[in-house]
Design a protein around this nucleic acid. Sequence first.
DNA 1: AATTTATCTTAACTTAGTTTAAGAAAATTT
DNA 2: AAATTTTCTTAAACTAAGTTAAGATAAATT
Lengths: 192, 192
Amino acid sequence: MDNLITHFNQYLPLNELEVEALGIRVIEKTIKRRQFILNKGDTCRHYSFVSSGLLRKYAIDKNGCEFNIQFATENQWIQDLGSFNNNTPSQFYIEAIEPSILFQLDKNSLLYLLQNFPKFDRNFRVIMENKFINLENRIFQNISLSAEEGYKKFLNEYPELYNRLPNTQIASYLGITPEFLSKVRRNISLKD
Amino acid sequence: MDNLITHFNQYLPLNELEVEALGIRVIEKTIKRRQFILNKGDTCRHYSFVSSGLLRKYAIDKNGCEFNIQFATENQWIQDLGSFNNNTPSQFYIEAIEPSILFQLDKNSLLYLLQNFPKFDRNFRVIMENKFINLENRIFQNISLSAEEGYKKFLNEYPELYNRLPNTQIASYLGITPEFLSKVRRNISLKD
DNA sequence: AATTTATCTTAACTTAGTTTAAGAAAATTT
DNA sequence: AAATTTTCTTAAACTAAGTTAAGATAAATT
């Protein structure tokens, strides 16, 4: 559970009491490649912190095409917050791309921590703010950049993901077809 | 300041102490149409709560095109969170589309409230979460929907904005040109 | 009320991205 | 190691969206 503690310590560091309260509530979960921790239609019951591995959250549009909303690697949180908060059926799937180890908090545990230790409110607020800032940048990039520019930016921003993801997953994150990404990549390589 | 109080009361209601602490720190600001409360390159110094009116946050890409990142109407917050939190130059502009009345909190005031009343951590956490959920949906729509579908969805989700915004602002939010939006609108009206 | 400025539409043309299909290369599973 | 499945590439035909330019409408300012 070390990297979860370290993660929180980046913000307002936890004291012993808080570490203990967290430790007895967190559940470690090992999942295999291709395993789903959330299916469309189900209610999201856990916050999941990725200790190791790689997952993706995606949705399927009315034509059956998948679109990646988020990748989560080491030390990142992944969940469907809307579904979790409102107990509503999720529109998303969350699937492991690599075998992964998660630390999960269910709703009761999270509420307990939030209600008894204000520091968790603080820390999750700041964590959320950072995720929000990233998403706003992504929106801007998405509406303003061409496919080629967006792909280059992705490689620049997430170089470690390039080796871990098939291009088809990157295409789905950018909102373009794999065939067109192939064309884009060919174009880029011709330029050099 | 009533609607700011009401806004917070939707989450964890404020007690008298908290209302007072908030009240003496909030600054009311009246701004005219076309007035900017944030310019690119400046550091964002305030959280702004829209009491009345309408503002937009936008960025300009390398070709000089504007892209709307957010509209904020009555009872919504608007700021550049990245710039505010990290004291870094903003990449965004925030401009009033209608004459507006804002309630602003500067950094010291906000920090005071957060440090002395944990409820503000809680409330801003939940406010942030809701904004995050909306943004994730917007990302999904943006990468999965055609311009026509996106425009219809926008009208459905924000019917009150339709009468208050020129189409060119909606186009900029959707990430399409005003000319193409015109074409889309004509297409829609021909179908009925 | 008159003037200026911003917005909306149309059309012809160009470009970016999609679709379909098929084969090659790589990675996973057996 | 062989078989299967997934991923990647290419190409031709197509469609969605952008560009440029110009005139029409509407809204804001003086």
